[in-house]
Amino acid sequence: MAHATSLFAVLYGVWLALSGHYTLYFLLVGAVCVALVVAIAMRMDVVDREGHPMHLTWRVPGYWAWLMWEIMTSAVDVSRRVLAPRLRIDPVLERLPTSQKTDIGRAIYANSITLTPGTVSTDLRDGMVQVHALTSGAIERLRQGEMDARVTKLEGES
């Protein structure tokens, strides 16, 4: 029930932000629509820890800040390589282990890998993630496991 309430609040917030009209009629129509969406989501059985992971809310901002820094540095690195007169790349495809316990943790890890320029996750199964990297340096960074450890900490299931 807590998940449904939180989903309702988030969706209603989006409605308010996008509509921009604050008359009684619009507020009521919005509430009805959002309630309908939450009801459908509950019928689909996706309103749970996995479908609406609100237990991550307090730890996510710190992780995002770190990820943003990571994205900036690797974006600059990739841009340098793209603009260099001679292409200095040595792409590799490799499987790396993941230490997350839940599917959502692994999904966050794989998505973070893809979001960081220079590395793309291409497959995720059996607790391993397959990564294509533009350079062997990028895959070396991943293998050191800082991102993996941070996502496991974010996930918080020990």
């Binding site: 990739v78 841009s79 320029p117 793309v120 294509h132």
Partner: peptide
């Protein structure tokens, strides 16, 4: 950074390497 992504999309040798500059555009 958007332009770098476009240049990379044209310059890179194969599909998988082209994914990386595209992600520079999408994020930065």
């Amino acid at each position: 950074f958007v332009m770098v992504g476009g240049v990379g999309l044209v310059r890179m040798p194969d599909f998988f390497t082209r994914l990386h500059p595209a992600s520079v555009t999408d994020t930065m």
